[in-house]
Amino acid sequence: MTGQRDRWAELTGGRAGEEYAQRFARLAASGHDVHGEATFCAALVESAAKVLDAGCGTGRIAIRLAELGHHCTGVDVDPSMLAVARRDAPDQDWLLGDLARLDDLGLDPDHDLVLAAGNVIPLLAPGTGETVVGHLAAVLRPGGLLVTGMGLDAAHLPLEEAPVTLDEFDDWCTRAGLTLRQRYATWSGDPYREGGGYAVSVHAAPTS
């Protein structure tokens, strides 16, 4: 038990599912590419990869990865978000769970890739970041990848300031046995420069 609500729940009250889905539907209808995260991840793995979308929200990324031929399970703590995911893709696996207690779900350590997009890491409950990263690393196969995207300033977060720095996050990953492989400024692969407001990071589990 963390004893604290995650920052997402504090912001939304756990009732943001439909609104969140409609926002991306409007973006797609206006011609925006809403599949950047899925395209990025698909380029990192072989066909039919086993993927865990941690903090999957309404399932936008997990559903797209499944359409691309991957086996993708989504887990989220917000029932309103999962309700949308289950409605849109009833045959996929959607798990209700707190990432700080991911080990309670009994997931096997055989995932090719674990994704935490959409500011999942900064919006965790205070004090749980290192625990969550450890749990995410624990379900990777040897050589598997942890892919994260997170804002580093108020312009890229629904918060007044960033609760996590890249140095802190990298330290959590190191403690979990992960090594930084690549870092970008966008899901399109633009190079990351020190002091940037958003970072897409690829950390790898040891091969043995």
Results as ranks from 00 to 15, higher is better:
Arg64Pro: 00
Gly97Asn: 04
Ala125Arg: 02
Ala85Ser: 05
Met81Phe: 09
Gly97Ser: 06
Pro79Ala: 13
Arg87Glu: 15
Pro122His: 09
Pro90Lys: 05
Ile63Pro: 00
Leu123Ser: 04
Trp94His: 09
Pro122Met: 04
Asp108Ile: 01
Asp104Thr: 14
Arg60Asn: 03
Ile61Val: 15
Pro122Arg: 10
Ala83Ser: 14
Glu130Val: 00
Cys72Val: 15
Ala100Ser: 15
Val84Ser: 01
Val120Leu: 11
Asp110Met: 08
Val114Asp: 05
Arg101Cys: 12
Ala100Tyr: 10
Asp112His: 15
Ile63Gly: 01
Leu107His: 07
Asp98Ala: 11
His111Tyr: 14
Leu124Val: 03
Asp112Ser: 11
Val120Gln: 05
Ala85Tyr: 01
Leu123Glu: 06
Leu115Arg: 05
Ala89Ser: 14
Glu67Gln: 15
Gly118Tyr: 09
Arg101Trp: 01
Ala89Asp: 13
Ile61Leu: 11
Trp94Phe: 07
Gly59Met: 04
Asp98Ser: 13
Gly69His: 09
Asp91Tyr: 06
Asp88Gln: 12
Gly74Leu: 06
Leu102Val: 12
Leu95Pro: 10
Asp91Ile: 02
Asp76Glu: 07
Glu130Ala: 15
Leu113Tyr: 04
Gly97Asp: 02
Leu65Tyr: 06
Gly74Glu: 02
Asp103Gly: 12
Leu65Ala: 08
Arg60Pro: 07
Asp76Asn: 08
Gly127Asn: 06
Thr128Arg: 01
Ala83Met: 05
Asp103Thr: 14
Pro126Glu: 15
Arg60Gln: 06
Glu130Ser: 14
Ala125Asn: 08
Leu115Trp: 02
Leu107Ser: 03
Glu67Met: 12
Asp91Ala: 12
Gly74Thr: 04
Asp108Arg: 14
Glu130Asn: 02
Leu102Trp: 01
Leu115Val: 15
Met81Lys: 04
Leu102Pro: 08
Pro122Asp: 03
Pro122Val: 02
Ala125Phe: 09
Val77Tyr: 01
Asp98Thr: 10
Asp110His: 10
Ile121Thr: 03
Ala66Cys: 12
